[in-house]
Amino acid sequence: MSGASQPLRDSTGTLRSPRPTTNRQVSNRATPPVCSQCPSALPVPLTRPKRLPSTEELSDQKLLGQCADGDERSWTLLVARYENLVYSEALKVGLNEEDAGDVFQQVWLELHRSLPRIRNATGLPRWLIVATRRLSYKVAARGRRMVPSITREMVDPASLPDEELQDVETRMRLEQALDELGGSCAELLRMLFLQPKKQSYEDISDRTGLAIGSIGPTRSRCLLRLRKILEAIS
């Protein structure tokens, strides 16, 4: 199909976050900001980095090892990969933005302290969630905050639901693979699979410039590429 080779429209910088009064914005890795001026709340097009290092270069295992050896850049990459997860988890358990910010900072200090003894790099998302939940409880308890959703059991790592954790890990791997995939393919798949609300083909066509009839074949090709990357990550 002719539309299959048609490049996706590059609309970088055409839209702005709907909340200009705050410097907090919706993650550009998990879910793009929503455009308040668009007719059906379409996500803002993403600005992709020029090129990210390969998945192998960026594996948690390698990053943790290099961080333990004192490498600045690896630390920065590691925090960049997981900062949205940590901050969102602190908000999700019920903390306000200020307390979530405190917890956010403490989690990274704890990770830094713990670097020499983290043996299971594949469990890093779990490690971070466990630390975030415990520190959220601590901040709430010390500040005598009455947050009904924050309970003492959050201090116990075993209280973390496995299913929730698996979903997060799946999402993390997917984000990592999409970063590596990059370009128009990643943008299309984010629209198709990572938006909380399903996007119609008409919306996707409007956003990407793809003919409606070529969305399916393009999606198939992109999915195959994504799967290869995911298999490499796993």
């Binding site: 705050t22 410097n23 907090r24 914005q25 919706v26 993650s27 550009n28 890795r29 998990a30 879910t31 900062e83 949205n84 997860l85 940590v86 901050y87 969102s88 908000l91 999700k92 933005e97 910010g101 956010f104 979903d167 997060v168 799946t170 999402r171 997917l174 699979f193 990572l194 938006q195 909380p196």
Partner: peptide, 11 residues
């Protein structure tokens, strides 16, 4: 992956 609640970037 779609089931994971929307992630929010820190300030």
């Amino acid at each position: 992956a779609r089931r994971v609640p929307k992630w929010v970037a820190p300030p």
